[in-house]
Design a protein around this nucleic acid. Sequence first.
DNA 1: ATTAATCGGACTAACATGGTCTCAATTATC
DNA 2: GATAATTGAGACCATGTTAGTCCGATTAAT
Lengths: 154, 154
Amino acid sequence: MFRLSRGAEYAIRGLLYLAMQPEGKISFIEEISIAQEVPKAYLAKIFQTLGKKGFVKSYRGPDGGFVLTKPASEISLLDAIEALEGPIHFNDCLIHEGYCHRDEMCPIHDVWMTAQKQFLSVLTGTNFTILAEAARVKAAKKTDRLKEAKCKQN
Amino acid sequence: MFRLSRGAEYAIRGLLYLAMQPEGKISFIEEISIAQEVPKAYLAKIFQTLGKKGFVKSYRGPDGGFVLTKPASEISLLDAIEALEGPIHFNDCLIHEGYCHRDEMCPIHDVWMTAQKQFLSVLTGTNFTILAEAARVKAAKKTDRLKEAKCKQN
DNA sequence: ATTAATCGGACTAACATGGTCTCAATTATC
DNA sequence: GATAATTGAGACCATGTTAGTCCGATTAAT
Ligand code: SF4
Ligand code: SF4
């Protein structure tokens, strides 16, 4: 179906939130879920798998929560997605050479290969510092637009 | 899940088969299903939707079967896939501008946009004459390899 | 009439998705 | 030490999608 799962989408939003916090600040699930508009219970489950995969560290008890375990620059968008969805293969024949016995005579195989390669390179080329920075820029632009609109009203 | 559905895979194989036949030759389901290793009954259903979408024309009765309605060069890989799976959107926010109200402040949105654009351009850039030609080249190479191997044995 | 093919749709089993809910464990604070 | 806030683990569930099968109706060539 070529569509990002909801779970992965939420994982990305969650990690992005952490990446935008001051270094080392502990954020708890409710805070993230409200800011990023993700169902709290679901987000909690997602962060558990994110924890198991080693992207976040958790603290229990009051004032507990989550922080990133690595610098945001070392977590790519692909990492986040694959943590939730598992490895990406556009078609079965891309799981490994010879998985589909038709691949050596199949002209479609190669198309999938290049398509997937390009796709993955976009996702690996984007990490969470880039995203956090882009978010700040976009937010600034948005407030600019709002100010401008207000100006015109007067 | 970012994976091609079985149905679309079969549709592509079926269309490729038709594209490789001499112009205007009628092929029937069983023939295609054997050549392309697709479950016959399933392929039959797939060809019905392919018919409704206007890619193939059908003839009933004995000696009936299917032919392409347009030149193979005018059917892109994307056409084939979307005929079976419906339109492709990597993420909900790509359905249309504003579908996700976060898109104007979301840094991830733009990444999906470029990723999807690239992906679609690969699929639209590949049509069934290209594929048919590539198939012939690959087949030739394969028989070459076999001959070579036989040579070495002696 | 027989036969070979598509047409149309009902039906199914298995799996994936997108959650919720509950209870247990941990820990800061009073 | 009691309380409260937080994560941890996992059972549970409703719904939708996938990948088919199967059957009876229709069409047309012989
Ligand atoms: S695209 Fe070709 S190689 Fe890949 S699964 Fe389909 S038939 Fe096999
Ligand atoms: S990527 Fe951003 S804009 Fe797209 S659906 Fe997720 S939050 Fe919305």
